[in-house]
């Protein structure tokens, strides 16, 4: 059981707010913390790892107290037995892949390092420095390095956000595979809904430092007020006013679509607004991207 209750004042772009979180998770869980940038996601991970100090609260992992403001306990990161994977990998440029992975091991075990490298298909590159690797390979090494020490808690800080969508899909599968075979409780910060659907056993939706909702991925992601059959989040890019209607260009994932709204509703929208596009009456036609006709917008699956 992992349990934490943490409080810290944060200085956000839209003013200061209080990060106040209380949460409990089982040891086989994979929690994805979802939220917009500036909602306190990364601060949460850093507080769990001991890289940042909360103002108040407590934290307990498998019966060990890592932090307790009342008793004055605050273990440094070295004593916390976490595996932390950084967004930009943070591999040591002066060490080979082998040395990077072996670095954090409690007992140096060359055979184990080789096993891990094989698992990620990187055994040929074991003596190379990280600078020759691609982004996906770097993140794989960073993950193995965190897992090699067999931590009590694995923390992933947006590990896929710097990667292209194709690489992210493969790596997501690998994270899932590793987490299952190592069976380490994991908390991953993300702003990507794909991560939630394919990885999370539970989602924690964070907004302005507070937990907005917790639950199974489908319950949290699809609990929209209107419960439409089909809905997409988008951002208004441009507004064009025609005689009887108004045309909005809306960015949805990596695609841009145009929608028409009646003139009398036009004033509600301006560029930059977040909108929800939905349809109730129509059934969208879904085809596999590669078999669809040669429409450029269908050549790649939208990564929503």
């Amino acid at each position: 059981m992992i349990r934490f209750r943490l409080k810290k004042k944060l200085y956000g772009a839209q003013g200061d707010f209080l990060l106040e979180l209380e949460f409990e998770m089982e040891e086989d869980e994979f929690i994805v913390v979802l939220g917009q940038s500036g909602s306190g996601k990364t601060t949460l991970l850093r507080m769990l790892a001991g890289l940042e100090k909360p103002e108040e609260g407590s934290m307990e992992v498998k019966g060990e107290v890592w932090y307790d403001s009342k008793r004055g306990i605050n273990l440094p990161p070295q004593k916390r037995d976490v595996g932390f994977v950084f967004q930009d990998y943070a591999l040591f440029p002066n060490m080979s892949l082998f040395e990077n992975i072996a670095f954090g091991m409690k007992k140096k075990d060359p055979q184990r390092v080789m096993e891990l490298l094989k698992l990620a298909g990187l055994e040929q590159l074991k003596d190379k420095k990280p600078s020759v690797l691609s982004g996906g390979q770097k993140q794989r090494v960073a993950l193995l390095r965190a897992l090699a020490k067999e931590p009590k808690l694995l923390l992933l800080d947006e590990p896929l956000s710097a990667l292209d969508p194709e690489t992210a899909i493969t790596l997501r599968e690998e994270i899932k595979k590793f987490q299952r075979s190592f069976n380490i409780p994991t908390i991953m910060v993300s702003h990507n809904r794909e991560d939630v659907l394919s990885l999370a056993s539970r989602v924690l939706l964070l907004s302005e430092g507070k937990i907005k909702s917790v639950g199974k991925p489908k319950d949290v992601l699809f609990s929209r007020r209107e419960s439409p059959k089909f809905s997409l989040n988008g951002i208004v890019l441009e507004k064009e006013i025609a005689e009887y209607a108004c045309i909005l260009s809306v960015a949805v994932g990596s695609e841009v679509v145009q929608v028409v709204v009646p003139r009398d509703q036009e004033e509600e929208f301006k560029p930059g607004d977040r909108v929800l596009l939905s349809t109730k009456a129509f059934v969208p036609i879904v085809r596999k991207a590669e078999t669809a006709f040669k429409n450029p917008s269908l050549e790649r699956p939208s990564n929503l």
């Binding site: 790892a49 070295q78 932390f84 670095f103 954090g104 409690k106 965190a146 020490k149």
Partner: peptide, 23 residues
């Protein structure tokens, strides 16, 4: 030296001294 490297070394259980010498 990127702060991340230093923090990575700390989370991998290395003391400040070891981090200084090895990272």
């Amino acid at each position: 030296v990127p702060k991340n490297l230093i923090e990575a070394s700390y989370t991998l259980g290395k003391s400040k001294w070891e981090t200084l010498i090895k990272v």
